[in-house]
Measured scan of single mutants.
Amino acid sequence: QVTPQEKEAIERLKALGFPEGLVIQAYFACEKNENLAANFLLQQN
């Protein structure tokens, strides 16, 4: 279960064009650090 703040962060990451499953994995792998997760996702392409 995610908090409203976490859900907002996940939605912002999804808005970058990444699928939800990948976003969630990256977000939690980066210890819920939205900026770190965004950098991680962008570097995967």
Rank of each mutant, 00 (worst) to 15 (best):
G21R: 12
T3I: 11
L42Q: 15
T3D: 15
V23W: 00
L41W: 00
P4C: 11
C30A: 08
I10Q: 02
F28S: 14
K32C: 05
E6M: 14
L22C: 09
G21C: 07
V23S: 12
K7S: 11
Q5V: 11
I24N: 14
L42S: 13
E6N: 04
L41K: 00
Q25V: 03
Q1V: 04
L36Q: 14
E34W: 04
A26N: 06
F40H: 11
T3M: 11
E11Y: 05
L41S: 01
F18C: 07
N39M: 05
N35V: 10
A37M: 01
N45D: 11
N33T: 03
Y27W: 12
A37C: 09
V2L: 10
R12P: 01
Y27E: 01
E20T: 07
L42C: 09
L13N: 02
V2K: 08
N35E: 14
V23C: 11
Q43C: 08
L22V: 13
V23N: 01
P19N: 13
P19A: 10
I10H: 01
L13E: 02
A37L: 00
P19G: 11
L13W: 01
Q1P: 01
P4S: 13
E6C: 00
E31S: 07
V23R: 00
L41E: 01
K7C: 08
Q1M: 12
P19S: 08
Y27P: 03
T3H: 09
A9L: 01
V2A: 07
A29N: 10
Q44V: 04
P4D: 15
A38V: 10
P19V: 05
T3W: 02
V2G: 05
A29T: 05
E8P: 11
R12S: 06
Q1A: 05
N45P: 11
R12M: 04
V23Q: 01
E6Q: 12
A26V: 07
L36W: 08
Q1H: 00
A26W: 04
A9W: 01
G21Y: 05
F18M: 14
L22A: 14
L41Q: 00
G21E: 10
Y27L: 06
F28L: 13
E31K: 10
L42H: 03
I24E: 14
Y27A: 01
E8G: 13
T3S: 12
N33Q: 09
A9E: 04
Y27K: 01
I10L: 08
E34Q: 04
Q44H: 11
F18Q: 15
I10F: 08
L41P: 01
I24S: 13
E34V: 05
E8L: 09
E11W: 03
R12A: 05
P4Y: 12
L42V: 08
F18E: 04
L36V: 10
Q1T: 11
N39I: 06
L22Y: 07
N39G: 09
A9Q: 09
Q5M: 07
L36E: 15
E6A: 11
T3Y: 05
N35T: 12
K32V: 00
P19T: 11
A38H: 14
F18A: 10
Q43F: 05
V23G: 03
I24M: 13
A29R: 08
I24D: 12
K7L: 09
E6W: 04
V2Q: 08
A9C: 04
E31Q: 09
